[in-house]
Design a protein around this nucleic acid. Structure first.
Lengths: 229, 229
DNA sequence: ACAATATCCAAACGGTGTTCGCATAGCAAC
DNA sequence: GTTGCTATGCGAACACCGTTTGGATATTGT
């Protein structure tokens, strides 16, 4: 027991393991059965403990949900970063990033709902805004590509328009961000997010080749940026 | 009682009144307290009857929710139709219609969520697709304006692209619809719906003049249509 | 007046999140 | 090694939820 001071004690280790197991059970319920089955008592059954014992590790169901949200944001951000980071021109990397956004939504529809809609009845996000940080991580790769394209002179700066408050996001993006660029990013984001959102909720005629339609949409968006190619 | 064959009988009148009162109480709960407070027992308390009696008028909570959805779709469609119908050029009417979409969402955020997200846990839309008809009523004014602008030669036809299955919506739009025009409409819809959706869920930096940003977005969309003005 | 139907409700069943009190196990200091 | 402190676990309870059942009551058509 000489190492107990440096490493985790036995109880702390068990505690960490149980926390991840609870979150894993919660995520399994969300993905396999939807937000309606994401219940604290159900999670307790899955991990084989009493409902009351969950409160030893989480303040309540809301805190479990917050953990799921943060992890999901990071998962989508990671997928987008991977798609954005590979070889190819910035235009190609940008297209891949927008595709990663949609592919992740299709692979994880329940998580996508959790991030961008409000499928859990009484849930309130916590004060500190840990979910905000995680959400910005999704947006970042797109802003980085725009910045890189701008810095290398591949696309012209956007025409000036109404200002966006960069105060909330700028400190969390490397090197800050210009208002016009941020607004351009939001406009682009609006477009492909809107398509994915409508699609996911069944508002776009099914049976169509929606992959091709999305590709067409992305082509339009990217070509409007005015790449010098 | 000679008129009973033509008019409604006393019971039928009371029944109709009670149905609207139940729906009104449900809508009040939704708008004032959110989807989480939209409970059958709560509605029963509000209208002063037992929970079991609600089942005399609705098959269950889902049927009440379906009624709310249909009415809400019609409310938004009505707002958009009004905005679209007034004086001015087609370009101006189109801008007003997109603004009506957003204004309605801001005035009725809970209803907007009900229509375009899935805030109620186990809800399943009914078979016959009455909600689909109502949803198309929202899309129709936009498609009508595009058709009118096209027929009068004010905007060029969209370049051909991947086909959209018009089978589901064409029979419900007067005179059918061309695949390329429908796809254009969906692309436009995606853009302003995406903005409203992100905005409503707190994903766009607050404190900004989002009205101006939306106006800028709409200007971009409309100018891209190539109005001859 | 009578039979059929519609309405209403109390009670119950199984589900939910959360709180409380108490028992037990792990651990740190003496 | 024993003693105290703290963390963990759980059963029971409370107040909700949607839904079903059975029986009582009121309205209707004949």
């Amino acid at each position: 027991m000489l190492v107990t001071k440096e490493t985790l004690t036995r109880r702390e280790r068990l505690r960490a393991e149980l926390i991840t197991e609870i979150k894993r059970a919660a995520r399994r319920r969300l993905t396999e059965s939807g937000a309606g089955e994401l219940s604290l008592r159900g999670i307790a059954r899955d991990v084989g403990m009493s409902p009351a014992s969950i409160y030893t590790y989480f303040k309540g169901l809301d805190e479990v949900v917050t953990g799921l949200i943060v992890d999901s944001f990071e998962a989508q951000a990671s997928a987008i970063r991977s798609a954005s980071a590979g070889q190819g021109s910035i235009k190609e990397r940008l297209k891949r990033a927008t595709w990663a956004y949609r592919v992740w939504a299709h692979d994880s529809p329940q998580e996508f709902r959790l991030l961008y809609e409000s499928p859990i009845a009484g849930y309130r996000a916590p004060e500190g805004g840990p979910t905000v940080d995680a959400a910005i991580a999704v947006m970042s790769p797109f802003m980085e590509l725009l910045r890189e394209a701008s810095a290398t002179g591949q696309i012209p700066p956007p025409p000036p328009g109404p200002p966006i408050d960069t105060g909330a996001t700028a400190p969390r993006l490397d090197g800050g961000i210009d208002s016009d660029w941020l607004r351009l990013g939001i406009e682009i984001w609006s477009q492909f997010h809107g398509f994915v959102s409508l699609e996911l909720n069944g508002h776009i005629p099914p049976g169509s080749a929606l992959d091709d339609v999305y590709d067409h949409l992305i082509d339009n968006i990217v070509s409007r940026l005015g790449f010098t190619d």
